[in-house]
């Protein structure tokens, strides 16, 4: 049997496994596999954060507690103080929540058999809209309603240019929510698709090699396997980097909305 034909037959099954399959309930009132894993990620996040906050000591004596504390410190120093600057302290709980939830969601997806909640566009849209509403809320709070709308366009422009620039800035502001959502979704989905394709190719080639007793088919899986491990390592990096990028962009948008131009 030709492994490539078999591979082409099996790819639709792989694609189908990324669809939001319903775990229980109906399509209008029920739960898909991504929502199921999202709730599990919520529980893990809450368990980690609450468990660690009970064991906080002045001198760190627990490696795990110290690690989570370092993560919080990373959000506070690198993202909060670095990107927002003055008055960053009140935004840290929001940013830390986003960071830990996205980080844990991305890492849960890397365990074979688990799904990443951020691998579906609905969850990332929800996260992006939360971020969008949050920075607009703080922008309105900082400048007042009309002042915030005016502050979208930079001050000091010649009169006739103001509506044009305002329009472009407004479009770019709406695009912020879109790009936040699609960046996270695209990275997680594409990464898992690449991992899935190579894992599928390895299993099909080895299956054909065993079935036909043809050792030529056993050669490509060696290369695939090396590539798969390398891609997996890259995905671990991407999982962290995307959580970082999402959080730091939220921080930058908050600082853009609240700072006076």
């Amino acid at each position: 049997m030709n492994p490539l034909d078999l591979f082409a037959e099996n790819v639709p099954h792989l694609q189908h496994s990324f669809d939001p399959a319903i775990v229980f309930g109906t399509s209008s009132f029920g739960m898909t596999q991504y929502i199921f894993w999202m709730i599990i990620c919520f529980l893990i996040t809450i368990a980690i954060v609450l468990g660690v906050s009970k064991r906080l000591t002045l001198v760190p004596n627990n490696k795990f507690v110290n690690m989570v504390e370092y993560g919080y410190e990373f959000v506070r120093k690198d993202m909060g103080e670095g990107a927002i600057g003055h008055g960053y302290k009140k935004h840290i709980p929001f940013l830390a929540t986003l960071f830990f939830f996205i980080l844990i969601s991305n890492f849960v997806g890397l365990i074979p058999g688990c799904k990443t909640p951020t691998g579906t566009i609905s969850v990332t849209w929800a996260l992006a809209i939360i971020s969008f509403v949050y920075f607009n809320y703080w922008g309105v709070k900082a400048h007042g309603g009309w002042g915030y709308i005016k502050s979208i366009a930079p001050s000091g422009l010649p009169g006739p240019m103001v509506p044009v620039i305002w329009f472009f800035e407004f479009v770019s502001m709406v695009l912020r929510a879109l790009t936040l959502a699609v960046r996270l979704y695209g990275n997680m989905f594409a990464g898992h698709m690449v991992l899935g394709v190579f894992a599928l190719a390895i299993s099909i080639f080895i299956g054909c090699a065993v079935q036909d007793a043809n050792f030529i088919f056993a050669l490509p899986p060696i290369g695939f396997m090396v590539f798969l491990i390398a891609m997996y390592a890259l995905e671990v990096l991407v999982a962290f980097l995307q959580a970082y990028v999402f959080t730091i962009l939220s921080a930058v948008y908050i600082s853009l909305a609240t700072s006076s131009h």
């Binding site: 690198d78 670095g82 879109l178 790009t179 960046r183 695209g186 730091i248």
Partner: peptide, 17 residues
């Protein structure tokens, strides 16, 4: 590095569109 990530994210927006 932070500035690089921000700039890369803004440039990446075009590809995402």
């Amino acid at each position: 590095f932070t500035n690089f990530i921000i700039g890369a994210a803004l440039a990446e927006a075009l590809a995402l569109i």
